[in-house]
Design a protein around this nucleic acid. Structure first.
Length: 236
DNA sequence: TAGGCCATCTGGTCCT
DNA sequence: AGGACCAGATGGCCTA
């Protein structure tokens, strides 16, 4: 970064008198302005001009403008990237089974639910018979059949989740299964090896490296950050 | 008012 | 040089 710009206070580029006054506009460097002859047999003058290309002198104002422009572009890219990620997350939400009245899952809930759902699905595929598939995903049972799909909960944690999202007015959970549950219990789903997918949480998020040295893997869940939530999507 | 969730900005790192 | 990706910081909004 430190060698990224070079500006000179004297004898350098005069931005006010320059025709390419954008400061960060490098289009004036376009190769179309050069003849093939120049490229093959550069004159001494050309050689000198080319050498100064990479570190062209810029005024402090130009440097600031250049930095600002790059920052704006980077912000736009980042915004677009996040929107793309959100779109993908939305498609994932639509692919997951949900309660009809349940409000939108949060990002982390969606990822966790998808992770566990896929895990449960993979566990079930080998055992499934023709007709209906029943998945037991922690507290939630998902039935996939020709007559439609159904999702039910064996504990009240779903009611808690719905109540949290829908507000006090929806405190009575509309699903019969929930009403007959005497109580719901809290537990740390990441320390409960009997329920959570045992080997799916690979602690390799920190090992993520660029390049092709290691495969991409699902990020480890951040149980330390989420604390002891009582949410069906976390505790699956 | 505290806490959770989210979008955005930002600087760093790596890759092309 | 610029793009992609990432993680931390920040501020807004909402809810209990």
């Amino acid at each position: 970064m430190s060698s990224e710009y070079s500006f000179c206070s004297e004898g350098g580029f005069d931005e006010l008198s320059s025709s390419s006054d954008s400061g960060f506009d490098v289009s004036f460097e376009s190769p179309k302005h050069e003849s093939p002859t120049d490229a093959l047999f550069p004159t001494a003058k050309e050689e000198k001009r080319k050498k100064s290309r990479g570190t062209r002198c810029k005024s402090p104002t130009q440097v600031l403008r250049l930095k600002r422009n790059r920052r704006i572009k980077a912000n736009d890219r980042e915004r677009h990237r996040m929107h793309t990620l959100n779109d993908a997350l939305e498609r994932l939400r639509l692919a997951l089974p949900t309660f009809p009245e349940d409000t939108k899952l949060t990002k982390i809930e969606t990822l966790r639910f998808a992770h566990n759902y896929i895990w449960a699905l993979s566990q079930t595929l080998g055992k499934s018979e023709a007709g209906e598939i029943t998945l037991n995903v922690g507290n939630v049972t998902v039935s996939i059949g020709e007559n439609g799909n159904m999702i039910t909960s064996s504990t009240g944690s779903c009611a808690v989740a719905a109540q949290k999202r829908l507000g006090p007015a929806h405190s009575a959970f509309p699903y019969p299964q929930e009403r007959f549950m005497p109580e719901w219990q809290e537990y740390d789903c990441y320390s409960d090896q009997s329920i959570s997918p045992p080997v799916q949480y690979q602690p390799c998020y920190e090992q993520r490296v660029y390049g092709h040295h290691s495969p991409h893997v699902l990020p480890a869940t951040h149980h330390h950050a989420m604390g002891h939530h009582t949410n069906m999507y976390q505790c699956l």
